[in-house]
């Protein structure tokens, strides 16, 4: 599996670290909404198809990346920097194919 880092170009997956599901919405740290915290920690879409993910190019430029990966084929359809695009955003379908350059 290759991930095309927006800075480094195509690199083997061995250079990257998975940072978790990109669909999670982290509640405000002061929040006492236990349902929201429960959803953040446990609820996952687990799709058979395109999935929003956060990866770090830990063995390269060390940038954090928003990746859309197909869980059936491993096809990577979108990779953008997380920087400058805080929060959940429209990391999935709406962001697809757009070569957002946040450098």
């Amino acid at each position: 599996m290759l991930i095309t880092c927006p800075y480094c170009g195509p690199r083997d997956v061995i250079e990257f670290t998975y940072q978790g599901d990109g669909n999670r919405e982290r509640p405000d740290p002061a929040s006492q909404n236990f349902e929201a915290w429960n959803a953040y920690v446990y609820d996952r879409l687990n799709p058979a198809g395109d999935h929003n993910e956060i990866w770090q190019h830990s063995g390269g430029c060390r940038a954090h990346l928003k990746v859309v990966r197909n869980t059936l084929t491993h096809e990577i359809s979108s990779v953008v920097f997380t920087r400058g695009d805080h929060g959940r955003g429209d990391h999935g379908s709406a962001a697809r194919g757009k070569a957002e350059d946040k450098s």
Binding site: C8, G9, R11, D12, I14, E15, G59, G60, C61
Partner: peptide, 24 residues
């Protein structure tokens, strides 16, 4: 290193961050 060392892909002067056996 699993990167492209060919001159057109890696021109003179350019730098790359990469790893071998997990060492940066």
């Amino acid at each position: 290193f699993a990167i492209d060392f060919a001159l057109p892909a890696f021109p003179i002067g350019a730098g790359r961050s990469t790893t071998h056996h997990d060492i940066f």
